[in-house]
Amino acid sequence: MTQPLHLGLLGAMPEEIGSDLSHLKDLSCSDHGDLKIHRGSWGDEVRLSLAWSGWGKVSAARAATRLLASDPSIDLLVFTGVAGAADPILRQWDVVLADAVVQHDMDARPLFTRFTVPALKKEQLQPQPAWFNWAETALREAHSAGDLDGFAQPSSGLIATGDRFISNPAVLQTLRNALPDLRAVEMEGAAVAQVAEQEGVPWLVLRVISDGADAAAAQSFEDFVKLYEKQAWRLIEALLQRCNNTPRHCA
């Protein structure tokens, strides 16, 4: 009998996954210092291990490491939540699935080129194509079916991570100049991707635009997350409802 898909799910804040865990059954919780890992099941098809990491690369990497170490059966690690728009065409509620991530504050020059992660010798990290294609297809199908009402048509692109909440247009433009394909900026995703890569676990980074990474970003962000908490789980559920088509099940 095929074992259920085991999804590791991380967000920086409860609002980015939805703090109400009533949609899961067989809930349990373990404490790891100040980090709580919640475990449960969604139907008979999916097991979930989830945690809220806190903001920033160190907190995200710590949570990812703890989560993966807590159960070696995790099939896929997903980091989800909100992000600032770097691409000027993006608006609030736009959904961006990362086809690549970069740590925009990683700079070990002259030993390595800018953005290169020394441990992996890569400037950008890409999710495994099979998992990315599954998630991209699932999100588009969910949107077409009306399961993501209120969210915009999902798209994909480069997401940049750094330990800075970007609300300065000049800073954002400097990043755009260095990374012409940049679509969104946030503070955790690429750190989680690095941990997953080094641990040999597939990963995805899924973001919803909350603000324009501009002078109004702080207020836009605060207002948006209050609304987003009520909708966040729907984005996760869009993937869970299509879990029978994952690379794991099709292998």
Rank of each mutant, 00 (worst) to 15 (best):
S167M: 03
F221Q: 09
R114N: 08
P118H: 10
N244V: 09
L21R: 01
R248E: 00
L239V: 12
E123I: 03
A83G: 09
F224T: 05
T80Q: 13
V201L: 14
R66I: 12
D107V: 09
G81A: 11
R183Q: 15
E222M: 08
V102A: 05
W203G: 02
I159W: 12
Q153L: 15
L77E: 00
L111W: 11
F112P: 02
S19V: 02
Q103G: 05
L27R: 06
S156M: 09
A138N: 03
S167R: 10
M1H: 09
D31I: 06
D94Q: 08
A51M: 07
L9A: 03
A190S: 15
I74V: 14
A69E: 14
P110W: 12
A178V: 11
S155Y: 07
L76P: 01
C250W: 10
Q231G: 03
V117H: 05
D163R: 03
A108R: 06
F151K: 06
V117D: 06
D163A: 04
S53N: 03
P4D: 08
I17S: 02
L48S: 00
Q173K: 15
D214Y: 10
K36L: 08
G40L: 05
F221M: 12
E16W: 01
P169V: 13
S53R: 00
A51P: 04
Q173V: 08
A190F: 04
A100P: 04
M13H: 05
G56E: 02
R242I: 07
Q126L: 11
L68N: 01
C29G: 01
S59I: 06
L90V: 08
S22R: 00
L206R: 01
G157V: 08
P88W: 10
S19G: 15
G146D: 15
V95S: 12
S155D: 04
K57E: 03
S220P: 02
L172W: 01
S53W: 06
F115G: 06
R39W: 00
A238N: 05
C243Q: 11
L111H: 11
A170Y: 00
A178N: 14
D34R: 05
A160D: 02
R242H: 10
A69Q: 13
A12D: 12
Q231D: 02
K57F: 04
G81D: 03
P202C: 06
E141N: 11
L97Q: 09
L27Y: 00
H104E: 07
G84V: 10
G8Y: 04
G40S: 08
Q153S: 14
R248S: 00
I89V: 11
H23I: 10
M187K: 05
K25Y: 02
G146N: 10
D147A: 14
H38A: 12
F151E: 05
V195S: 01
D20I: 09
E16G: 00
V96N: 02
P88L: 08
F132V: 09
F79A: 00
P180S: 11
P129T: 15
S156D: 13
V102L: 12
V192I: 15
H32R: 00
K122C: 13
E188N: 03
G54V: 05
L68C: 02
R114K: 12
A63G: 03
Q124T: 14
D214R: 15
D26I: 04
R91A: 14
P180L: 11
A170N: 07
S49Y: 01
L27S: 10
T80Y: 04
S41M: 14
E15A: 15
P110E: 13
N168I: 08
P247F: 15
L9K: 02
L239Q: 07
K57Q: 06
W93L: 06
